[in-house]
Design a protein around this nucleic acid. Sequence first.
DNA 1: ATGTCACTGAAGCAGTGA
Length: 262
Amino acid sequence: MEEPFSLISWNVNSLRARWPLVQKLIEEEKPDILLLQETKVEDALFPEETLGDFGYNILFAGQKSYNGVAFLSKFPFEERRKGFPGDGGEARYLEGVVHGWRIANLYAPNGQAVGVPAYDRKLTFYTHLKEHIAQCLAQEAFFVLAGDFNIAPTDADVYNPQELAGQVPCTEPERTAFRSLLAQGLTDAFTKVSSTVPGKKLTTPFTWWDYRRRSFDPNKGRRIDQILLSSQALAHSRPGEVLLSYRTLPRPSDHAPIRWYL
DNA sequence: ATGTCACTGAAGCAGTGA
């Protein structure tokens, strides 16, 4: 039986601003694979050497100000890919084959609000993503798609479903897009476990809490970061958790890291 | 209800995105 390896996915909301916490996460959690979203750093300024010194092989794609993704792996890359056809040309997707597993890192568009162009671009992005993921699943039995999907798949995935009804990230077209991804043959890993935070029971753990109000302590969050697994990946995996402590530390991201064991 | 954070360009703040 092969030893399991750990995967952590985290929307850091600026790698530079989050650098102390990223270092802490690497040193304390020692993920075999670390997928970062919203790095907001151009390739020329990406700290490739420093992260390499931590023992990672690295794939990254950045932009100035917006977006940006990085894929850190203790295992060497057997294949690597940046973006997919129809992704809109933004730095939102990385894919690699490591340790015999095909793993993809996603930062889906936010979509802003129903009726604006960004919302339509989000749905288009998902249409093309689904087509690409079908190919990934055809290529590798062990496939993982993880990251910030910017979709709350069900009403249970936000604290205030009534307020958010019909709004991003809870609209029916977004949820249909998410279910279409699952229909390709993927399982949303965190729906397979229940989680408890002190004093509050949750069916699925939230991963994001708004900066703008006192939202973390009363757990007024959303579950918009997910880890999707192919059936063989799921069968080979065991549950991880949301690393809530990283949302309580000084200068946190608005997202918490999520971990799974593969 | 519109309270925070991070970014950029440009000037010590305003606009944008999340």
